[in-house]
């Protein structure tokens, strides 16, 4: 009896080590290539690390620890970079992500609803074609849209000229979408003026963004039990009432995580912004990630870049805590419903 107990104990002990064994490979690798660099990053952020220190790293004799100077420089716009103001970039970054999601989600839901109409011809073809924007690499999308907003050859200006001609104004339109620094609607976003480039990017990103939301919404729509609608129409509910009282609440559990996902995606939408405007004009469309890239790749101020990355991390953490709250709230909602 005692023997059996001790072997059981030994077995239990082995069992308790097992999870760590399963975690070992991941943590070994992450320790070297993720955690160590992250700690290194924090250390570097307190130094004046530049290109000349590249060879010896932390061992180089001229490397100085300068305390919080990098952080203070970033917050007080004391960096010798034109048109850079951290809080303006931060505000724009939040606005950019929010305004995108608020356009993409309703559009995605509406179009998914449209395609869910029974008896609609060519439904399958539409569904297949509408996913195409998601599958085109961002660089290609950005280049095509840069062309569309081109001052001289662009389709957008030609289209506007056509509309103008229709209303009796035959002049060709030369709107400088990516160069004009004057905000078309002054005071729309206090503190971070929105230039024409922002609107151009919004249009282009709308094209890119709604199809994903529409795919998610389609999946959720098809899982709504159909007898709900039958019962509602027996009770005399109009299509409109059914949409707001059945479709919308039942889509919410699926759409909120998708919206959160879309928000983080837009918040860090490096490729698209970098290729389309490069953050210009006058850094009016700069995101945190594009500026961080600029610091490493072009300016090569590694110390400042590290401090900036630490700040990005803290911003991301705050965003995560907020969005996590939102998804949690819907999970409870889902369970209650």
């Amino acid at each position: 009896m005692a023997v059996a107990k001790s072997t059981q104990k030994a077995r239990k002990k082995r069992q308790s080590n097992l999870p760590y064994l399963y975690l070992l490979p991941a943590f070994l690798i992450m320790g070297v290539i993720t955690f160590y660099p992250l700690i290194y990053q924090v250390i570097i952020s307190f130094t004046n690390f530049e290109s000349k220190h590249l060879l010896l790293g932390l061992k180089s004799p001229e490397l100085e620890f300068i305390g919080f100077k990098n952080y203070i420089d970033i917050f007080t716009a004391a960096l010798p970079v034109e048109n850079f103001n951290f809080f303006r970039v931060l505000e724009f970054n939040f606005w950019w992500a929010l305004s995108n999601v608020f356009l993409h989600v309703p559009a995605g839901v509406l179009i998914a609803t449209l395609l869910n109409t029974e008896g609609l011809w060519l439904k399958r073809i539409y569904r297949a074609a509408y996913i195409l924007p998601v599958v085109v690499p961002p660089l290609v999308v950005a280049t095509v849209w840069t062309n569309i907003f081109d001052e001289r050859y662009g389709a957008m200006n030609q289209l506007l000229a056509m509309i103008g001609g229709f209303f009796g104004n035959p002049d060709p339109v030369y709107i400088r979408w990516f160069e004009d620094v004057k905000p078309p609607i002054p005071g729309f976003l206090p503190g971070a003026p929105l230039t024409l480039a922002y609107y151009a990017m919004m249009i282009a990103n709308f094209w890119l963004g709604w199809p994903f939301m529409s795919v998610v919404a389609t999946g959720a729509l098809q899982s709504i039990p159909k007898d709900l609608y039958e019962a509602a129409s027996i009770d005399g509910a109009t299509g409109n009432q059914q949409f707001w009282n059945i479709t919308v609440p039942l889509l919410r559990p699926a759409m909120i995580p998708a919206a959160v996902y879309g928000f983080t995606l837009s918040f860090n939408l490096f490729n698209f912004v970098f290729f389309m405007t490069g953050g210009g004009p006058a850094r009016s469309t700069e995101l945190l990630v594009t500026f961080a890239y600029n610091l490493v790749r072009n300016l090569r101020w590694y110390g400042v870049a590290a401090a900036f990355a630490v700040i990005i991390f803290i911003v991301a953490l705050i965003v995560f805590l907020i969005t996590n709250r939102i998804t949690r709230a819907t999970q409870n909602y889902q369970e209650a419903g």
Binding site: M30, T34, I44, F313
Partner: peptide
């Protein structure tokens, strides 16, 4: 440990690029 794995997810690739650049360059 779960939080530890999750932390890098919050960092966009650009944010992790500086230390990786510096360390790999050595």
């Amino acid at each position: 440990l779960m939080v530890l794995v999750f932390i890098p997810l919050l960092m966009p690739a650009v944010g992790l690029s500086t230390p990786l650049y510096l360390l790999l360059n050595q």
